[in-house]
């Protein structure tokens, strides 16, 4: 019998399986096309560009912008329902386990660098930027600024999204000469964002998730109420601070285990020497509850 695999390894396996599974349409890479089957009516929980040649599911942020940019805008019940279900069950466990672009940033963060940054002056206020991007680039601009055809533009996809550049832009422009010839300022701008975030990822843990991701901003709203969340057993906690010291998002899980900024990497639960910090599943009255099970 071998030693049990550490939690971080199991999480990495899930991340890899989800990233490969949601981009499993291999003919798309060979032909320079995108998957056109019925699965694309469903959204992937994480940020995964539907213009990726391998993508078999839709991007929820891309879909939300499309509905906001429609020539006849309507309340996007389908997407609101999707966010309520995914967020209500998982919260930001989506970010930690199911987001391909999150995995890319984590792998880049493994590149050795003289000094890794945990937090810095201005880090906290900058984290609010993702809510501004959600409101402005995903909802308001697509809804309010019309193009010549009477509809709006997907502003976030067009001007910011590095996942679209990496998963869609790079493989399609490499594989399709006509697209390569159409490259201009916009592509250079988006490549600049992608390269800047890649470099920053080597120094700072998940910079895109911290400051820019509108999908993370949506799931952050659910972290405190999601079925899957962390709990602290006050009786077992010795206050050693190992969890806060090891948190890559520079949070204090002991004080606030379900902080909106927590991407559920699980490092704190592995570091806790007494096991006081743990995952509370769908058990409403588990250990530590003030109400006994009936």
């Amino acid at each position: 019998m071998g030693r049990p695999r550490p939690r971080s390894f199991r999480r990495r396996l899930v991340q890899a399986a989800v990233s490969i599974g949601t981009n499993a349409y291999l003919p798309g890479f060979a032909k320079g096309t995108v998957y056109g089957g019925g699965l694309k009516a469903a959204c992937a929980p994480g940020l995964n560009c539907y213009a990726c040649p391998g993508a078999v599911l839709s991007c929820p942020i891309g879909a939300l912008q499309t509905q906001a940019a429609s020539a006849a805008p309507h309340i996007p019940y389908y997407l609101i329902g999707f966010f309520l279900v995914a967020g209500g069950v998982l919260g930001r466990f989506v970010c930690g386990f199911l987001c391909p672009f999150g995995l890319v940033q984590e792998l880049l963060h493994k590149i050795p660098f003289a000094r890794k940054l945990g937090t810095f002056r201005g880090d906290r206020p900058l984290r609010a930027l993702k809510y501004v991007i959600l409101a402005l680039f995903v909802v308001l601009l697509p809804l309010c600024v019309d193009n010549a055809a009477g509809g709006g533009q997907p502003w976030f996809c067009e001007w910011i999204c590095p996942a679209g550049t990496l998963e869609g832009g790079v493989p399609l422009t490499l594989g399709v000469p006509a697209l390569r010839r159409a490259i201009g300022f916009l592509f250079a701008w988006k490549m600049g964002i992608l390269v800047a975030l890649a470099l920053l990822s080597a120094v700072l843990y998940r910079p895109f998730c911290r400051y820019l991701c509108p999908l993370g901003a949506i799931y952050a709203l659910f972290n405190r109420v999601a079925l899957l969340r962390y709990r602290v057993d006050e009786a077992a906690c010795t206050g050693c601070g190992s969890c806060a010291e090891g948190c890559p998002m520079a949070l204090d899980p002991r004080r606030e285990p379900n902080h909106p900024e927590c991407v559920r990497c699980g490092r704190c639960t592995g570091l806790c020497p007494t096991g006081a910090l743990s995952l509370q599943g769908a058990k409403p009255f588990g250990p530590g509850s003030t109400r006994p099970p009936s």
Binding site: V34, A51, S70, L79, G168, G169
Partner: peptide, 16 residues
Amino acid sequence: EVMQKAVRVCLECIGI
């Protein structure tokens, strides 16, 4: 509607 958008190459998404 979601599918209709997703089954075509989204030029905005890829930076064209």
